[in-house]
Design a protein around this nucleic acid. Sequence first.
DNA 1: TGTATAAAGTGGTACTACCACTATGGAGGC
DNA 2: GCCTCCATAGTGGTAGTACCACTTTATACA
Lengths: 234, 234
Amino acid sequence: MTVDATTTTSLSDLFGDDPVSAALAALIRTLEPGDKLPSERDLAVQLQVSRTALRDRLGVLEGLGVLKRRKGSGTFVEQLQPSALATALNLAMGSSHLPLESLESVRIALERQAAREAVKQSDPVLIAYMRRAIDTMKATDDHREVIIADRAFHQSLLRAAGNAALTFFADALTNLLQQDLEDRSARLQHARLSEERQQLVIHHHERIYEAILSGDADLAMAAVDAHFDALPAS
Amino acid sequence: MTVDATTTTSLSDLFGDDPVSAALAALIRTLEPGDKLPSERDLAVQLQVSRTALRDRLGVLEGLGVLKRRKGSGTFVEQLQPSALATALNLAMGSSHLPLESLESVRIALERQAAREAVKQSDPVLIAYMRRAIDTMKATDDHREVIIADRAFHQSLLRAAGNAALTFFADALTNLLQQDLEDRSARLQHARLSEERQQLVIHHHERIYEAILSGDADLAMAAVDAHFDALPAS
DNA sequence: TGTATAAAGTGGTACTACCACTATGGAGGC
DNA sequence: GCCTCCATAGTGGTAGTACCACTTTATACA
């Protein structure tokens, strides 16, 4: 990554004038997800701060989603988890801003882009997952399986783009929107699609799938838009 | 996904079986951004935990970006800050995953969506900001002002959508990409646009602006795509 | 060789004392 | 009456200790 020697700048900028957080950030940069950090006691000595202060920063970094402390085991570098972002967004939604519709709009934007990049990527294996999700939905009429297949299709679409950031944000939003759904209708039967509606969904998915196969990025994006325009919150 | 009926509430799910975090989350939900939380000493008594444990959770929530502790003043509910997300993403980038290009691709997706919604929103005041940014870039040849005007245009476009989530994510990405730029070329003169290139940017901005004014959402999105296709990382 | 148990190591909590900073309000001057 | 200054109470931040609960590892035993 950054090799310039003068890099006191951006690191300290990230955490203001806090040298401990900056040192931790630098340490994390040298590690891979899954790696274990030194013990809090060792790290406190190494950074010349008390364990109390160290733990405070570790907590912040855990909140950011880049660390995970496991009781009895140690502290590990986490692959940034979409769920962490979802948690933050969930709290933000409660505090009035970030309305639900605006989040759904972001999700549409991400899927539209995913369709575009899936065309360029053109990975037959990943695209095959989309095919299978469509076929699954065609084959069943159990409303739970239908919903699962629906989600599988959209998830496959995102994966087919082969874009880590796209997947990350989309997962976070899915996570969040699902949390919200469970909140509002805990027991209310998962809104089951009518037979007619289900056929419409399949039709739209087919169109998206075929557009991606055809190699026409604009057509693929249009197909995604048509899907969400016709079936909001699908 | 897990559909267990035992879902007491999503609150407890959010923080596992940690009652302290759940209680804090519930408290935060009842407050507005800017509101002050009880002092740590009071809150610790109220939640029946030590100040140590309480501070640990407060640190996590601060990392999530929903709280801000100010020395000497108190702890306040924050409007979820894009910069917090940017910090997390920045660390994630260092850890190999989430490559820069994938993040830029998300930004494009968001701006494309912004153009689409700006058409629907059609707020003359917000659109006027775009106009002004274009005119500013036309009028100056100072490379710093050009860059500022460029950013102003894109920011105006995002704002014109009138979509909080869109703005939030875009700001986070802008924040992040800018941090990264400063990292790599700290002293390297801000890549100044050639005269030719500047004219091209202006042309593209004009096309986006006019498309939004015309009310054609598809045209607006196409204009955004044309912009980024011709001028990556602009 | 395999299993059970002990030991070492880890993060989590509690409590205390103190520091540095901020805001508040009252005393003094104008 | 009004403003300035400053002591003071209140706040988050840090340090250090001791201990707990859990996990992992090493050891002893069968």
